[in-house]
């Protein structure tokens, strides 16, 4: 056990060093863009995984918080000149406040009823931002004013800086997940995920736990929204509240392994790299064929490995341990 712990720490240190050095070695901005996307979607997946993975509340409405975070920071920046660093926190707070009524409504529902209710809230929010132009900029959206190199306003000339911000966000998300996983809250969440009625019967205050984890999850998702808007310099309801963000958040976690610390990261690395590589290999020859191949890979993973890739890795590791002669 002691040895394994040491190995884990070494592995983690190596991964951190590689990730920190990566943008210094890789100069292609296309590659850096892919890395940023991987980090960002890993982060969204990690935020989703807290609730969708550990407590098994299959939400497909996290785009609501992504969009709220994006809009809060953008409105604060453009209308009041407040730095998006503060806007990021403000967006998180707005998302937390929004998650209270949404959670109150949705958590009384189970299974597909819960899922469809979360989708409905995200879609309704998108339509509200489309419709009521006084609130924001309506359907046409707006561009973030380009200030050149302004680190205080989350604008950088070098792509690598965005990379480090995204890396920091992911590290924050993983640290929070790790803390929760090791605390009493993690056990409560898993108990709720396994069987909510049984968990309540033994004294877990399920509504309170679910509300708390939803607060944390929505806060983190909103931070991702702020970052994304600052990164692409543009915001409109269709991208900020895109249903694809909700899907992606759930998908990377499911493919990687729900309810595991590293699952969303593994899932995003696999899915994002496959889709990008397929696009550059096949996209030029037959239009759309990369999406077909991508979907087939997705189906294969979900059909044959419902526990996700982390499950696969764990099983392989356990087989290896069994085969090896036992030593003290």
């Amino acid at each position: 056990m002691q040895g394994q712990r040491k190995w884990n720490a070494l592995l983690l240190a190596a991964a951190v060093i590689i990730l920190l050095v990566l943008p210094l070695v890789v100069k292609s901005s296309f590659a850096i863009d892919i890395f940023i996307r991987i980090l960002l979607f890993s982060f969204i997946g990690v935020a989703w995984n807290l609730m969708g993975g550990y407590a098994k509340q299959l939400s497909l409405g996290h785009a609501a918080y992504f969009g709220l975070g994006a809009y809060t920071s953008t409105i604060l920046q453009i209308d009041f000149g407040i730095s998006p660093w503060i806007g990021m926190i403000a967006g998180g707070v707005v998302a937390m406040l929004a998650s209270l009524p949404i959670g109150w409504l949705c958590f009384r529902l189970r299974g597909p009823y819960f899922t469809i209710a979360t989708i409905a809230t995200a879609q309704a929010l998108m339509l509200i931002f489309l419709k009521f132009r006084d609130l924001a900029w309506g359907a046409e959206g707006t561009t973030i004013p380009n200030l050149g190199n302004a680190p205080l306003m989350v604008q950088f000339e070098a792509k690598a800086a965005y990379y480090y911000v995204a890396l920091g966000l992911l590290a924050l998300g993983l640290a929070i997940t790790y803390r929760i996983e090791k605390s009493w809250m993690g056990y409560y969440l898993v108990a709720i995920g396994e069987d909510e009625d049984a968990a309540e019967a033994i004294g877990v205050n399920a509504p309170r736990i679910k509300r708390d984890i939803y607060l944390i999850s929505s806060f983190l998702t909103a931070m991702a929204g702020t970052f994304y808007t600052q990164y692409i310099y543009f915001i409109d309801p269709a991208t900020a509240f895109s249903f694809n963000i909700s899907i992606e958040a759930a998908l990377v976690s499911i493919v990687g392994g729900i309810g595991t610390l590293w699952g969303p990261v593994v899932g995003t690395v696999l899915l994002e790299t496959t889709s990008t590589l397929l696009q550059s290999w096949l996209g030029g020859s037959i239009g759309g064929v990369q999406l077909t191949v991508y979907s087939l890979i997705l189906m294969a993973v979900i059909l044959w490995r419902p526990t996700g890739l982390m499950g696969l890795a764990t099983e392989a590791y356990q087989r290896y341990l069994r085969r090896r002669p036992a030593r003290a």
């Binding site: 409504l105 529902l109 009823y113 469809i116 209710a117 409905a120 809230t121 339509l127 509200i128």
Partner: peptide
Amino acid sequence: FVGADSGQIVVFAMLLLTLAFKPNG
């Protein structure tokens, strides 16, 4: 009554209200 681009708002509001009172539809 709401607008040509946002008729679905009413549908989602109806869904959420219904589920608030009748969680099983």
